[in-house]
Nucleic acid binder design. Structure first.
Length: 738
DNA sequence: GGTGACAGTGTTTTT
DNA sequence: CACTGTCACC
């Protein structure tokens, strides 16, 4: 294959739109020498995406590179779509031939194009994490290992972590540790099943494509000649494998333009290595470093707070954001009594902002540490009739009903897809139970054939009880009927026919309210199929059904089902990265929750939590509202909580406490002389949750909850041997004990 | 083989 | 608390 750079006539291009809107630092990065690697340290809100997009435009329009020679990699599908869209707008034409995608998407594309060299069947299938987990369960069963001892999730984590390090089972050092040896054995068995069935999990996409390039010099040099420039977004999130992949692709010949921010590295727990930022200049010689420190997003107040917080981290590359923008309103802080009060407060504030300041609901984001926290906000918002949208959580293509429908589709395409067979053979229930299934499995193993073939064999030989045999017969006929019904139809009608025949809709309709949305989702799946556009460049010779199935695995379907309504945005702090909102609530700022308890023992992980907080703060454009609860119910039990240390790490003069004279407050930490706890220190008579008190009638007890303010303030006290009582502070005459 | 009750269990973040 | 998996009963 020969590709020539199509030299764009630079003299005809007006470079003004490209460099005009940039500040000096951005301009330097965008116009960096085209043949040298560059590392752009881009602070939050400093125009990172803009620099990437303008860099591409600069390379094409001024340096004369063809879009064909450009590879741009991101982490999320959304970021990839945005980059493509904005480049198109800036250049005024679609950058044909340019490769823009996620690491996984591009790896997928490479493997499709070179499946033979990668030793994969042409129709290899992608496993999402749920599929992977099921397959691991199957592997454990095959090895006759107890799931209680070898917990599937942990096995999954082990395998993925090894793959992310680029390690095959054979390459893992034997430390003599029995558990580890077993895990490696499971890994090897899992890998073997994947190989036999042509299955590729997420980590495998990357690992396999690294191996593909590494072991096929002719391919590698082809791509090194083809790509004249590689751009990487969110570089701080690259894991060992992704970094290796970049090194391999570059080979010191292809310049890499990496943009990242060490202060926003929040995926260390899943293998991302911030150290790659430090390593970059060493591994990519002649690299130039650029810093973007001017922030265009937030008010000076918000920025000051964020800068102050992040300075508590050691080991930073050192970067300080500044803005020419106005001070803006102070940061608000609300110490809620409990998690319900917190939700009440947040929703009330949103209503106020919408009513008083004419804010759109979509301008407001409510951020939290863990998905479970969304529920309370959802309930409250629903109660108040405020439309909202929750990001993250279960994605469209990960939903049960969608996966069921896709499994039928898959099975009707490839009868020997065992995972799909197992998934739907008795879904909806049709009288093929565990016992029958086990017979099928055994037969399959004995004969070395697929479950489908085994089922057919059993049907013919009558090796099953009549009832089970009949049920199995009907199932086989059903799948055959699906395959037949699909013939000659456009993709979306094929999907519709399969759903229709599967009986899933009736099945879910019986489940009442929850089933109703499942049916709606199935309808939405038909729409997704209708809207799916087949890309011959990626999908090559694949059938449209296969292509759609690959698409479903790779794009969890963030855009699916999202209404265009003006909605309050609910999401985790992780999910908020890369986004911005006029108003941001950061909730649940409590020790143990945020920072998360599991991150407290290790300094590195605590710093990551702090960076997560930094990410949250810097999402806000104008208004930032922080909250914590003094008591939080976790797994049905109330816990007394302390305000997050991150609150202490914000400059107190920037923060306006919404409840200055607190009646009841949580027990301060032993170090409790920090700014925030000082601010919390109320009047002498104030009681704290967790404090021991004495009551004339009930004796001694502990304050466990509280509500109301001033004269109506009440506390709940758990009295020794007596139980819990709610008491009005004013009349209870409580005395502190000890 | 299907269905319900019950107990046990685990809970961060996700391409 | 909410979900999953197990077990007894239909």
């Amino acid at each position: 294959m020969h590709h020539r750079d199509l030299k764009a006539p630079a003299s005809f291009m007006d470079v003004n739109p490209i460099i005009g809107p940039l500040n000096e630092a951005q301009r330097e990065a965008v116009t960096a020498p085209a043949h040298e690697p560059a590392l752009v340290l881009a602070g939050a809100g400093s125009g990172k995406t803009r620099v990437l997009v303008h860099r591409i435009a600069w390379l094409c329009a001024v340096e004369g590179l063809s879009p064909f020679g450009i590879l741009a990699v991101t982490f999320t599908n959304k970021a990839a779509a945005e980059m493509r869209g904005r480049t198109e707008t800036l250049l005024g034409l679609p950058p044909g031939g340019m490769w823009v995608g996620t690491f996984h998407g591009i790896a997928h594309r490479l493997l499709r194009m070179h499946h033979a060299e990668a030793e994969l069947p042409e129709t290899f299938q992608i496993l999402d994490s749920d599929d992977q987990l099921r397959l691991i369960r199957r592997t454990l069963r095959a090895l006759a290992l107890d799931e209680k001892q070898w917990i599937p999730r942990q096995v999954q984590w082990f395998i993925n972590a090894r793959k992310d390090e680029g390690l095959r089972p054979g390459a893992i050092a034997d430390t003599g540790d029995y558990a580890r040896q077993q895990l490696v054995r499971i890994y090897a068995a899992y890998e073997e099943i994947c190989r036999q069935s042509g299955l590729v999990d997420f980590a495998e996409l990357l690992l396999r494509s690294v191996e593909l390039l590494r072991d096929h010099p002719e391919l590698l040099s082809h791509y090194r000649r083809r790509f004249r420039h590689v751009l990487v977004d969110e570089f701080q999130d690259t894991n060992a494998l992704q970094y290796q992949w970049l090194q391999l692709l570059s080979g010191g010949e292809v310049p890499v333009f990496a943009v990242g921010d060490d202060d926003q590295s929040i995926y260390g727990w899943r293998g991302a290595r911030v150290e790659h930022i430090q390593a970059f200049p060493r591994d990519f010689p002649r690299c130039r470093i650029y810093r973007l420190e001017q922030n265009y997003r937030s008010t000076a107040t918000i920025l000051k707070a964020a800068n102050h917080l992040i300075r508590f981290n050691a080991d930073r590359m050192g970067k300080s954001l500044w803005t020419e923008g106005e001070e803006g309103p102070p940061i608000l802080l609300y110490g809620a009594f409990n998690e319900r009060d917190e939700a009440r407060f947040v929703v009330e504030r949103i209503q106020q902002l919408v009513a008083d300041e004419g804010l759109r609901r979509a301008d407001v984001a409510v951020l939290y540490r863990s998905n479970a926290q969304s529920r309370l906000f959802e309930e409250r918002l629903m109660e108040q009739g405020i439309p909202y949208r929750v990001y993250g959580g279960l994605r469209f293509f990960e939903r049960l009903e969608i996966k069921d429908a896709l499994a039928y589709l898959r099975l009707s395409v490839n009868r020997h897809d065992d995972a799909s067979f197992e998934r739907v053979v008795n879904q909806p229930t049709r009288g093929i139970g565990e016992r029958t299934l086990q017979t099928i499995r055994d037969t399959a193993r004995e004969r070395g054939v697929s479950l489908w073939t085994a089922a057919e064999l059993l049907r013919e030989t009558g090796g099953l009880p009549t009832r089970a045999g009949n049920a199995l017969h009907r199932f086989i006929e059903l799948v055959e009927a699906m395959a037949e019904a699909r013939e000659g139809l456009p993709l979306f009608e094929q999907v519709a026919r399969v759903i229709e025949l599967s009986g899933l809709q009736d099945h879910y309709l019986k489940e009442g309210e929850a089933g109703r949305t499942r049916v709606e989702n199935l309808e939405e799946l038909v729409n997704a199929a209708r809207g799916f556009d087949f890309d011959p460049q990626i999908h090559g010779e694949m059938s449209d059904v296969d292509a759609f199935l690959a698409h479903a695995a790779l794009e969890a379907g963030e855009g699916q089902g999202g209404r265009w309504e003006d909605c309050v945005q609910l999401m985790t702090l992780h999910a908020a990265k890369g986004l911005e909102f006029p108003v941001v609530f950061i909730t649940g700022l409590e020790e143990g929750l945020f920072p998360n308890a599991r991150s407290l023992d290790e300094p590195g992980r605590l710093e990551e939590e702090r960076r997560l907080c930094y990410v949250g703060l810097t999402r806000a454009q104008r208004r930032l509202i922080l909250s914590y609860a003094q008591s939080r119910r976790i797994y049905g039990r109330d816990h007394v909580t302390e305000p997050s240390r991150f609150l202490d790490e914000l400059p107190s003069e920037l923060i306006q406490d919404l409840r200055p004279p607190v009646q009841v407050r949580p027990l301060g930490r032993s170090t409790g002389t920090t700014a925030h706890s000082n601010r919390l220190r109320g009047t002498e008579s104030a009681f704290r949750i967790g404090e021991r008190v004495r009551h004339q009638g009930f004796g001694e007890g502990v304050i466990v909850d509280c509500e109301g303010q001033g004269a109506s303030a009440r506390v709940q006290v758990r009295f020794d041997g007596v139980g819990s009582k709610w008491l009005v502070l004013e009349y209870a005459g409580l005395q502190r004990v000890g």
